[in-house]
Design a protein around this nucleic acid. Structure first.
Length: 625
RNA sequence: GGCCCCGUAGUGUAGCGGCCUAACACGCCACCCUGUCACGGUGGAGAUCGGCGGUUCGAAUCCGCUCGGGGUCGCCA
């Protein structure tokens, strides 16, 4: 080894020892004689002192060294002189008196500072990801991710789960996301698909008699990206045989509660995790993944406004919709411009409009209840349709006080839910209502089995087609698919879905009826799912599972908003890798081998293909090899 | 695929028709400084404003296209 200790490991008790360290020059403080260097490696930082009188050669080396040079130093660990300790540093009680120093490698000045957490543009960070990962925040995220993965492996192992790898080269699936395809050289015209998840493999493992399976599995989806979506991401894939919904939920709660204790002991979690049905979540928050850290629940005002002459409300109700609202605390202070913005946001979500009512704050000491309101106490575009008392009653129904603002939407439930959910989250964000010290876990259960796809005019599976419908709803499968409940469930936290799973249909007859409802004919089913249908005829055990998103889970514990911050080498929004510059064209020979021909669009795109925007000084260097 | 935002020295920002011969901070280079730890001091180098085209007497500033990054809706679980 080129070093005897990690830089960050040294403590007072090491004083007097002779050690060898190796690491990067984090920062250099040259006093024109005496030189201090903060040496950094994966374990942390330590201060190295170079005394010109005691180690002239080493000091000469130190004076030529620059940021990010790789340096090896041999010397004595000494307690710092009284008054020169640094309490901000774990190693601040001691320092290394350099005896010898060797430059193991020089470094160009990095494109952005490694030794400070200055904000740097995404593109530059991704282009030089290996340098970005050297920075404290990123290296801590990598470390946390490792600890979480290790924790999960130990946790699953303790409970008798077997980690089994499944193929990456598989079969394209007709349902769900777009597949990444891999052309076959040996079978001209045929393609593998990268797995969107190991869903079918893990169910086959259940048929194989593996009672308890898990895998830290990479999944691939060729869809447009977001801050919380990458083309390749990682799931903790879990499946169990001979279980019911309750068993999976209990395991999942145990896992997340344990992780929260281990990695976020300072944050509060609910115990037990609330169970909320899908229908209740939509009713109270308009979302299947509500942020439960704050209130502003949706109230149904339909009965209060049923007979109103304000047609926006009455007509919406006549047409089968409802009038629903949330009360924004302190919303009366909202500037007119911001209120207009809320109206625009509502329209973007498909609402025809948004009615708002502001209840002006009462004078000092007066009650803030919505009683005895006068014209002056209320501000609203629909003021002339309602008396102040009527508006006050609407407000009271929403739990509003004086000073608050009602946001009222009138439409089909699908629209009002979506609109009020977006507004609720927006307002909470703007007002900082969500406490960072809270992790509001909850399960969402009784998810509908199907939803109607308006575009394709057919039913599609909300979770996926192997999900088991409720036994008591089986009769509705053909007549009223929309009201069939399923044994699909999600675990959510702070407005994010962390995992979803289900009890599967292990019976072939039920699976065939589900396929029928989805409009997948027997012939097509045999072609795409024949292996599953077949496997289920050989004594498939009842089984079910769940698949937590690992990236989101780590991001949650790391306090990161964006899963890119917890992935070592993420891709940009356009699914490119800025480090390697992938994807890239391949040679004509490679294309011929896999029997692929480019169309005109592809040829044109290759001609216009932009040179890398960021200069690559190292390219000439690489080309010489 | 639609809509929106951004693109100025190495990094982060300012400038938003002529005052820009492009400013500031950090970084970088040189010199000075023996106890600092975001060390300090003095001096200096460094961008023609992502690219292309247009408007204008005049463009970093306005317009169009394009490339790249990001957000959002669709898509995706």
């Amino acid at each position: 080894m080129l070093k005897s200790h990690g830089c960050g490991e040294l403590r007072g008790e090491h004083a007097g020892q002779r050690v060898t360290l190796a690491g990067w020059v984090h920062r250099r403080r040259d006093h024109g004689g005496l030189i201090f260097i903060d040496l950094r490696d994966s374990t942390g930082l330590v201060q190295v002192v170079f005394h010109p009188e005691e180690a002239a050669e080493a000091t000469a080396v130190a004076s030529d060294v620059r940021a990010e040079f790789v340096l090896q130093v041999r010397g004595d660990v000494v307690a710092r002189k009284a008054g020169t300790e640094n309490p901000d540093l774990p190693t601040g009680a001691i320092e290394l008196q350099a005896g010898e120093a060797t430059v193991l490698n020089a470094s160009e000045t990095p494109p952005f500072p490694i030794n400070s957490d200055t904000e740097v543009g995404e593109a530059v960070r991704l282009r030089y990801r290996y340098l970005d990962l050297r920075r404290e925040r990123m290296s801590e995220n990598l470390r946390l991710r490792h600890r979480i993965v290790k924790f999960i492996r130990d946790f699953m192992d303790d409970r008798g789960f077997l980690e089994i790898e499944t193929p990456v080269l598989g079969l394209a699936t007709p349902e769900g996301a777009r597949d990444y395809l891999v052309p076959s050289r040996v079978h001209p015209g045929s393609f593998y698909a990268l797995p969107q998840s190991p869903q079918q493999w893990k169910q086959l493992l259940m048929v194989a008699g593996v009672d308890r399976y898990f895998q830290i599995a990479r999944c691939y989806r060729d869809e447009d990206l977001r801050g919380d979506r990458q083309p390749e991401f990682t799931q903790l894939d879990v499946e169990m045989a001979f279980v019911e919904e309750e068993d999976v939920l209990v395991l999942t709660e145990d896992l997340y509660a344990s992780m929260a204790r281990e990695f976020a002991s300072e944050r509060s979690i609910p115990s037990p995790f609330p169970r909320i049905t899908f229908a209740e979540a939509m009713e109270r928050w308009g979302s299947d993944k509500p942020d439960l850290r704050y209130g502003m629940e949706i109230a149904d005002l339909s009965n209060d406004v049923r007979g109103t002459e304000f047609q926006v409300f009455s007509r919406a109700i006549e047409q089968g919709g409802r009038v629903r609202a949330i009360a924004v605390p302190g919303g009366t202070d909202t500037a007119r411009r911001e209120v207009d913005r809320l109206v625009d946001m509502a329209k973007e979500q498909g609402a025809k409009g948004l009615v708002w009512v502001q209840f002006l704050a009462a004078g000092d000491g007066a009650s803030d209840r919505l009683e005895g309101l006068t014209e002056e106490d209320v501000r609203s575009p629909v003021g002339r349709f309602f008396t102040p008392e009527q508006l006050g009653e609407l407000g009271t129904a929403c739990g509003a006080r004086r000073g608050d603002m009602l946001l009222i939407a009138a439409d089909r439930d699908a629209v009002t839910s979506k609109v009020l959910d977006v507004l609720r989250r927006h307002v909470a964000d703007a007002q900082g209502l969500a406490s960072p010290d809270e992790m509001a876990f909850a399960f969402i259960t009784e998810t509908p089995m199907f939803e109607f796809d308006e575009d394709e005019e057919r039913w599609s599976a909300v979770h996926h087609l192997f999900t088991a419908p409720w036994e008591e709803d089986l009769g509705l499968l053909e007549q009223d698919p929309g009201s069939v409940r399923s044994h699909a469930y999600d675990i959510i936290c702070n407005g994010q879905e962390l995992a979803s799973g289900s009890i599967r249909t292990h019976r072939r007859d039920v699976l065939e009826r589900v396929l029928h409802t989805l409009g997948i004919g027997l012939e097509e089913a045999r072609l795409k799912f024949g292996h599953m249908l077949e496997a289920f005829t050989y004594g498939a055990p009842p089984h079910g599972g769940i698949a937590p998103g690992l990236d989101r889970t780590v991001a949650l514990f790391a306090g990161e908003r964006d899963i890119r911050e917890v992935i070592a080498f993420p891709k940009t929004k356009s699914a490119t890798d800025l480090v390697m510059n992938a994807p890239a064209p391949v040679t004509a020979k490679q294309l011929r081998e896999v029997h692929i021909e480019l169309d005109d669009e592809a040829e044109e795109a290759l001609e216009d293909r932009a040179a890398p925007t960021v200069e690559r000084p190292s390219e000439a260097w690489g080309a010489a090899e």
